[in-house]
Amino acid sequence: MIALRIQDARKRFGTVEALRGLSFDLRAGEMLGLLGPNGAGKTTLVRALAGRVRLDGGRVSLFDRELSPDSARPELGVVPQELALYPLLTAGENLNVFGALNGLSGDKLRARVAWALEWTGLGDRAKESVKHFSGGMKRRLNLACGVLHEPRVVLLDEPTVGVDPQSREKLYDMLAALRSAGAAILVTTHYLEEAEARCERIVVMDHGRAVAQGSLAELVAVAGLPARRLTLHLERAIATAPEGFALDGGGTALTASVTDVAAELPELLARVRGAGHAVRDLDVRAASLQAAFLALTGKELRE
């Protein structure tokens, strides 16, 4: 089941084309990572999905219901990149405000606020002003304020920026709990290792359109990268690489692409030994998301 469908989304701000025919789907219950260099159009997309940007073209559907900026979006929860909290209010008061603004009231609101305080681990800090909270606590509360009304689709714009590894772990545990409850999650991030580890599928955006999407293996294939990379660390530096290898590490390492490690490794090692070089160590690594991302989007700075 498709929770959220973006088809040929287009948006121009003056001379800047922020979205240029972006299309992808978010399936019910999945966590989808949306990656892209700065200026790729991620935040514009999130704002368009939240009804804060009017698309020039294309369609956005939420559970098969086409959305316009004025459409109600009770199934959608938006967690902005900024810590959009009222610093003088307590955690409980912030949750009450954003719950009420999203249509909750009475017992339902009280129950959801209690759940959120428990879920975020802020139960014992409920009556403290948010301005005294650490960055990680604010991030958790920021997330909770966006999902109080039990949305079936959650959009998160850089949810873990500026927090320590422990807080990131906690935030992703919280997202996992949302997924267990059936929510589909679209998360934009620059932390590629997080997307690689946490997301089932990834959409790579660049220049306002999706340049690749799918699992990591599919992205690697689209990027034209080898499935695995072999690195041989040598005892001494050499000047010329044997056939099938490339020099690396200032001549102290040789690299090669391999598809079937068991079949190809003996032959490659024999070739190096035959050339008179001694191998001190070796490692074999699968292609990373980082490598695929850079291959897909290039290495030029975007700002």
Partner: peptide, 13 residues
């Protein structure tokens, strides 16, 4: 500047 306005306007208000 804090983003709360964007969040409020993204709700039902």
């Amino acid at each position: 500047e804090s983003g709360t306005l964007e969040r409020v306007l993204s709700s039902r208000v």
